[in-house]
Design a protein around this nucleic acid. Structure first.
Length: 353
DNA sequence: AAAACGTGGAG
DNA sequence: TCTCCAAGTTT
């Protein structure tokens, strides 16, 4: 099976930017960017990143805000903050040398079992197994695994398969081969079994259970929240327009990113009441609402929001009561502040005025 | 063990 | 419009 998969890989592997010059740094950055993220999404981010931060030293000497800005739009922003932390650790505690041992790699921030195995095998040629979404699907089908793939028992079995069946001579290529096989042939929907190099050993194919493998967990209902946000224009003699941004807490959703202040609508509250309450609580000021500034729908990982924005002014200078920091920002500088998708859309609308 | 954590694309 | 999910990790 390993030979069939590697022979297929040698003929069909994808040409991807991180597959040139396999330095540990390039493999590491690509692996983090690819966590839960499509290849096509990652490619332009990866190319910009390597221009902006060509090595660990340039990354470690940047500001976290600059790093988050480079990550803006990729999502799961703790990944960017972990990368930044890891760059500092490698530079200051490891003499600037990326560790080669899987166990050591796995101790670094943002690197779990999969990523440690991928880096160890791909960048260092070590016989370390990797189990990602693609490989999990491929092995669930080859072994016709009836256990839910993400259950404790299922994970145990699948990691065991990944360890036992790893090609010891070409571990990095083998792990990548399984991922390419999962991405190109053994796809979630409509897999191309007739073109698969391991069709003859695939138990799910034999048992006609391919479409039922892997066994997925039940999906939970996703709540939907109504939220408001204030686009606050600074009043006063200054002829240049400035708008107020607040920096989110350093933990949780969109940590350390900037946003237009606001919050969830509570029961029995109108949108305007919600906004005035939030501004009072977060900024210690009275909001004078002037006009609606658009509705924005957005789906996060585990909830959805409909955000109603309003153009406002304040009756006094705001205080950072809830945010880490607040800042009056000229329209031309809104670009430089890392934001999540929905706040970026609001910022773009301001810039189009 | 289960929940939190983003976004964009396909069907 | 809506669902599902795509190279997982952390708490």
């Amino acid at each position: 099976m390993q030979k069939k998969i590697l022979d297929w890989f040698d003929l069909n592997k994808r040409c991807l930017p991180w597959r040139d010059q396999r330095t540990p740094y390039r493999v590491w950055i690509s692996e983090i960017m690819l966590q839960q993220t499509r290849v096509e999404t990652v490619i332009p981010y990866y190319q910009r990143w390597m221009t902006q931060f060509p090595d660990i030293r340039s990354l470690a000497s940047a500001d976290e805000q600059t790093v988050l800005k480079a990550w803006e739009g990729l999502g799961y922003y703790s990944r960017a903050r972990s990368i930044y932390k890891t760059a500092g650790i490698i530079l200051h505690e490891m003499n600037g040398v990326f560790p080669a041992e899987r166990k050591t790699i796995e101790k670094l921030p943002g690197i779990g079992r999969y990523t440690a195995g991928a880096i160890a095998s791909i960048a260092f040629g070590q016989p370390a197994a990797a189990l990602d979404g693609n490989i999990r699907r491929v092995y669930s089908r080859i072994g016709d695994v009836a256990l839910p793939a993400r259950s404790t028992e299922g994970e145990k079995l699948l990691w065991r398969m990944a360890e036992d069946w790893l090609d010891r001579d070409r571990p990095g290529d083998y792990n990548e081969a399984l991922m390419d096989l999962g991405a190109l042939i053994c796809t979630p929907l409509n897999p191309l079994c007739e073109s698969c190099p391991v069709m003859s050993v695939c138990l799910a194919y034999r048992n006609q259970t391919v479409s039922q493998r892997p066994v997925l967990a039940a999906i939970k209902p996703i709540p939907h929240f109504m939220v408001t946000a204030a686009v606050i224009r600074r009043t006063g003699a200054d002829p240049t327009a400035h708008y107020l941004l607040a920096q989110r807490p350093d933990k949780g959703l969109l940590a350390n990113l900037w946003e237009f202040p606001g919050g969830k609508v509570e029961d029995g509250e109108t949108l305007e009441e919600c906004l005035r309450r939030e501004i009072r609580e977060e900024l210690g000021a009275q909001a004078v609402i002037q006009a609606p500034f658009g509705k924005y729908k957005h789906a996060y990982t585990h909830f959805r929001v409909t955000l109603s924005a309003f153009l406002c002014e304040l009756d006094r200078e705001p205080q950072p009561l809830a945010a880490q920091a607040i800042q009056w920002v000229p329209v031309s500088a809104l670009d430089q502040f890392p934001m999540g998708k929905i706040d970026r859309q609001i910022a773009l609308r301001i810039q189009s005025l």
